[in-house]
């Protein structure tokens, strides 16, 4: 009897593994296929697309074309500047507002909180027409700063919401002891409270970083110029130019995938913990 249960259990575990392996293959195969073929000569890309690149024929000709022609490094740098600066402002301004809302009682507190958090439900893209007008009138069209401002605005509502939830849980005794010691409110926020809410900061960083790095819409609309092109927009226009040169297209795609892949493998633990903790809370 117990043996029967154990066997049934094993069969169901096996079935679960089979289904999961199937979907895992489906999730990984397209990316692997592109990376693999980017190292093959043209004949093999078409002749044997599913084979691994062999040592005799391995080639970097696609990478050569791409790196000679395009400013991939420059695009990469632009994306990095935009993402890091936006993230910095989101966390700084978000923490400041969240601290004010969660720490002090003042008239209009709840109203301001609602006003800020409402933005989670308003898709900023629908304001594109107005944002473009605004940026042009401020002389910021085709600058990275315009992108940083837009992404900061887009990320703030979520940041304020998540951080004020976390900040409410920081012990009052700690803060009051600091006040007795004569620390200013700013010192309390930056020296005491921020280090305590590090998990919230990690969650926000991971959640806002990916959409900013991957966004195509605002770079296309606000900063399409060559000097301000982000990685995503650069890859898009770049691959378009090479559409018949398969070596170059596959190499360009690989170059666009690899940074994201490395970042993901480095932070996947935090990311997954962030999602699961956020949902359980």
């Amino acid at each position: 009897m117990t043996q029967g249960i154990a066997r049934r259990f094993q069969i169901s575990t096996l079935a679960a593994h089979l289904v999961l392996i199937g979907f895992t293959l489906l999730a990984l195969a397209p990316t692997l296929l592109v990376i693999m073929n980017s190292f093959k000569p043209r004949k093999e890309i078409f002749g044997a697309p599913l084979a691994l690149p062999s040592f005799e024929t391995i080639t970097l000709i696609g990478y050569d074309t791409v790196l000679k022609r395009g400013d991939i490094l420059h695009y990469f740098q632009n994306s990095l500047i935009v993402t890091v600066c936006a993230l910095f402002f989101i966390i700084l301004f978000g923490a400041m507002a969240a601290f004010a809302l969660s720490e002090y009682r003042f008239p209009g507190n709840r109203l301001i909180g609602l006003f800020l958090v409402m933005g989670i439900m308003v898709p900023i893209r629908l304001g594109t027409v107005g944002i473009l007008k605004l940026m042009v009138s401020l002389g910021l069209a085709n600058t990275l700063f315009a992108l940083i401002l837009v992404y900061t605005a887009q990320g703030l509502p979520m940041a304020v919401f998540v951080m004020s939830e976390f900040m409410r849980q920081v012990s009052d005794d700690l803060k009051n002891a600091a006040r007795v010691d004569g620390l200013s409110e700013y010192t309390i926020l930056f020296r005491l409270v921020l280090p305590v809410v590090r998990p919230a900061i990690a969650t926000i960083a991971v959640f806002t970083m990916v959409p900013i790095w991957n966004d195509l819409w605002f770079p296309l609309v606000l900063a399409p110029g060559e000097s301000t092109r982000t990685m995503t927009l650069g890859a898009q226009s770049f691959i378009g130019q090479f559409i018949t040169d398969w070596n170059a297209v596959l190499a360009a795609l690989t170059l666009a995938i690899v940074p994201m892949l490395i970042l993901y493998l480095m932070f996947s633990r935090q990311l997954i913990r962030g999602i699961t903790a956020g949902a359980v809370k």
């Binding site: 402002f89 301004f93 800020l116 933005g119 308003v122 900023i124 629908l126 304001g127 594109t128 027409v129 107005g130 944002i131 007008k133 605004l134 401002l149 837009v150 900061t152 605005a153 887009q154 703030l156 509502p157």
Partner: peptide, 12 residues
């Protein structure tokens, strides 16, 4: 930032 860059353009 939220008002000037996000809300006002959406309303505009």
């Amino acid at each position: 930032i939220y008002t000037v860059i996000m809300l006002l353009p959406v309303f505009d």
